[in-house]
Design a protein around this nucleic acid. Structure first.
Ligand code: FES
Ligand code: FES
Lengths: 160, 160
DNA sequence: AGTTTTCCTAGTAATATGATGGGAAAGATA
DNA sequence: TATCTTTCCCATCATATTACTAGGAAAACT
């Protein structure tokens, strides 16, 4: 339906990782149980399990089974970008009709449409690659990005 | 699957509009038949019909039925942005779990996640609101946007 | 052993996507 | 008026994706 859709998986995943970031900042080796994250953020527990498994397979999270087990970040939170998380959970950032933006071919007057999609992807990267879990946890976004939030209308939806 | 997905509808719609832009630049009142657009761009004809109808309902395209009928732009191509087209065909630019970015609520360590999604939407707007059909047809993108294309790696996919 | 917690595979209901088909309505031409 | 052309509109369809849920195996700890 929408050009950009942050899926439930990506949104839940970010929230889980921010819980783990808070725990990491207390003690980097501390484990947090899936059940605790689920309750803290209101995420269905079995769904969350799958998300955390995917994040482990991508090397973002580490886990331990059994009593006193749980999850923790496997990298420092200032080394995990939002783009890393979204790619781990939803695949490549951008696609045009299922293909990579650089792979679609255009003829005639639409010859230069490819540039538009590539520029769009670059703009998204400039946001998502440069924000880390640590930035969000500390509410301290990189300056060029918080500038975007000061644009008039940034917080309103566009009507029309 | 992807965070940003330019749907077949939006991609076909842009290509159709760029055909109409070319015709407009010859003669603003000139009509182009759906069948001609379909053949020129390789778009399934019945699917294209529905897309053009949606664009007409959004006031971007005008149409006339009957022999010697067809479609044309209803506004000058430098007054139609990519964002207008994408919104007409795919709905709002950005959503988080089906909601507007400004409507989602976060608690605890994820409190400031909303800012990230709002900044992402603002970055997309900065690209899509400022490129017009005329810009793409003339291969003459606004300077801040073509700067994005010069970034190292803009044309490569990220292997991450 | 027994308990806890993660790991893994499968399945499912609801919705979106990318179409296709059949004709009605409107405009042009003869 | 009759006919042809082209858009308009409705309904349908196959496939895929999304957001979950169920059930149990495998590890780690007491
Ligand atoms: S991703 Fe474009 S500058 Fe870093
Ligand atoms: S949309 Fe942000 S500056 Fe125009």
């Amino acid at each position: 339906m929408q050009a950009v859709h942050i899926s439930a998986k990506a949104d839940y995943g970010m929230r889980a990782l921010l819980e783990l970031t808070a725990s990491y900042l207390e003690n980097p080796k501390q484990l947090v149980k899936g059940d605790a994250i689920s309750k803290a953020q209101g995420i269905p527990v079995k769904f969350l399990e799958g998300i955390l498994r995917q994040l482990r397979q991508s090397g973002i999270v580490a886990s331990q089974r059994g009593a006193e087990g749980g999850y923790r970040l496997d990298r420092s939170p200032n080394e995990v970008s939002i783009a890393d998380v979204v790619r781990a959970l939803d695949g490549p950032l951008a696609a045009v009709r299922g293909q990579r933006p650089e792979d679609v071919e255009y003829v005639g007057p639409s010859e230069h449409l490819k540039e538009v999609w590539v520029a769009l992807r670059a703009a998204m990267r400039d946001v998502l690659e440069h924000i880390t879990l640590a930035d969000v946890a500390a509410n301290n976004l990189p300056a060029p990005i918080s500038a975007l939030l000061d644009e008039p209308g940034a917080w309103q939806r566009r009507i029309g």
